[in-house]
Write a protein that binds this DNA or RNA. Structure first.
Lengths: 108, 108
DNA sequence: ACAAACCATAACCATTTGGTTATGGTTTGT
DNA sequence: ACAAACCATAACCAAATGGTTATGGTTTGT
């Protein structure tokens, strides 16, 4: 699957409610909209809209099962953000570079 | 210095113009507001406002020198974002963990 | 001395955003 | 069969956001 643009990912994760939903999906695994609504503390339509934004950034996938829709986090979509940090964080750059070098030596 | 909250950092970097300014400061080093204005393609007051947002997130520092103000990136402020990725990106978690382990073996 | 350069703030504006309630379409349980 | 549950979308609203022009305070060059 094509990765979403970095911009969509940064935008999607800039909202605390959306981050909380993504965090919850990461921690607890797949969840229905109903469960996420109880968790998020906002209305069900608000949750649905947040999930739509996360979906456009490829940060979540959904699976319909009867009348419920199950969402789960898709952490690979964070890659543009990780790549960005690698490029623009001088502080972390060295660490990442060493990671690359070491991993390549470990599994050629 | 106290790190800014993760929320401020995520918010500040969610805007493409602001990210571009931060990227430019990282690549080219210290810059005046004037130089950043030419670079950013928006008005000087717009740049000043973006710099204020970045400043609140501790992503930039400024230094007055006569009538000009020089800004520079402060990449350590990205740490909350890196920490967040470590916590919530299952995909990258393993890589980070291996980095930690390997680095510790390399320099005890 | 004074005009110009640099920057921040104020005042303003259109658009976006994050929330709400209302509604309707499927699906399920009884 | 039908009421209730689940979810998405529509319609709406207040507040936040990202931009603009206007203005004023320092500092610099002549």
């Amino acid at each position: 699957m094509q990765p979403a643009t970095a911009n969509l990912v940064f935008r999607a994760l800039s909202d605390p409610t959306r981050r909380a939903i993504f965090e919850e999906l990461t921690r607890q695994g797949e969840q229905t909209v109903h469960a996420l609504t109880r968790f998020a503390g906002v209305s069900q339509p608000a949750v649905s809209k947040h999930l739509t934004v996360l979906k456009r950034a490829k940060l979540v996938r959904h699976r319909r099962d009867g009348r419920e829709t199950h969402y789960r986090a898709q952490s690979e979509a964070l890659e543009p953000m990780v790549d960005w940090l690698r490029l623009y964080s001088a502080f972390w750059h060295e660490r990442f570079d060493r990671l690359e070098a070491v991993l390549e030596r470990m599994e050629p």
